[in-house]
Design a protein around this nucleic acid. Structure first.
Length: 226
DNA sequence: GCATTAACCACAG
DNA sequence: CTGTGGTTAATGC
């Protein structure tokens, strides 16, 4: 177990920036840092959960086993809190979190977390804002998945990676074709074909997992009309 | 009917 | 793990 000092952590979420020294030291006492390799599970669906996880570095996928097949719910990147809905909302986890790149995470006892929520309203407020943003995002994603065709969903996800996760037109997909299809809700073959097609039309530059968006406008158009 | 979309299957690097 | 081709079911002119 690494010894840590939360007050020295520069990778603070918006919420954690509001924490006072005494609250940070409260976290220190019950906080454990764990490193995860790509592919390692941070917490598992159906297991009892009693921690809030603070993602210090890295990226994870949240997945759940649907009635037919597994589904990637969302890709989350550090810094952020993980497992708020699934830890506060029920006794058992409704989804799993798996690292998709080397990831560093702090495990915080739920009771300590609750205590801090109750004494620091700025912190609590920011947590609520995050949760609300997340819910809006999920509503959008839900409608997109249900009402758009595959090309639109693919474009949507490519734009999400570019704008939300990497803040760059060029990025390395942290998912293989199969996982990406689980995110976009389509088949592996369709992902292959459609990425190739976008590449042929010079809307993206594709080189293995490396994606560069060449024509953002067209991509946005596909997202709208797909 | 005929075209389009996209999943499923099989097979090859 | 990925790309390709063939096949097929569903949907919409």
């Amino acid at each position: 177990m690494d010894k840590l000092d939360c007050s020295l952590c520069i990778l603070k979420s918006k919420a954690a920036k509001n924490l006072h020294a005494n609250e940070l030291s409260l976290m220190n006492e019950s906080c454990v840092v764990v490193n995860f390799e790509k592919g390692e599970t941070i917490f598992k669906e159906d297991a009892l959960s009693s921690n809030i996880i603070y993602l210090q570095e890295g990226m994870v996928k949240l997945i759940t086993k649907g009635p037919v097949k597994k589904q990637i719910l969302k890709i989350k990147k550090a810094p952020c809190y993980l497992g708020l809905p699934t830890t506060m909302g029920d006794k058992i986890n409704h989804y799993s979190a798996i690292a998709i790149v080397p990831t560093k995470a702090c495990f915080i006892d739920i009771n300590v977390f609750k205590k801090i929520l109750s004494i620091n309203t700025d912190f609590s407020f920011q947590i609520i804002v995050d949760l609300c943003k997340n819910e809006l995002e999920q509503f959008d994603r839900c409608v997109n998945l249900l009402q758009r065709q595959v090309f639109g969903r693919l474009a949507d996800n490519l734009i999400y990676f570019s704008e939300e996760l990497y803040k760059s037109d060029e990025f390395e997909l942290p998912l293989n074709r199969n996982e990406f299809s689980d995110l976009v809700c389509t088949s592996r073959e369709s992902i292959t074909r459609m990425l190739k097609e976008l590449s042929d039309e010079e809307i993206i530059l594709l080189n293995g997992q490396n994606v560069k968006i060449l024509d953002k406008n067209k991509l946005v158009n596909i997202k709208k009309n797909g």
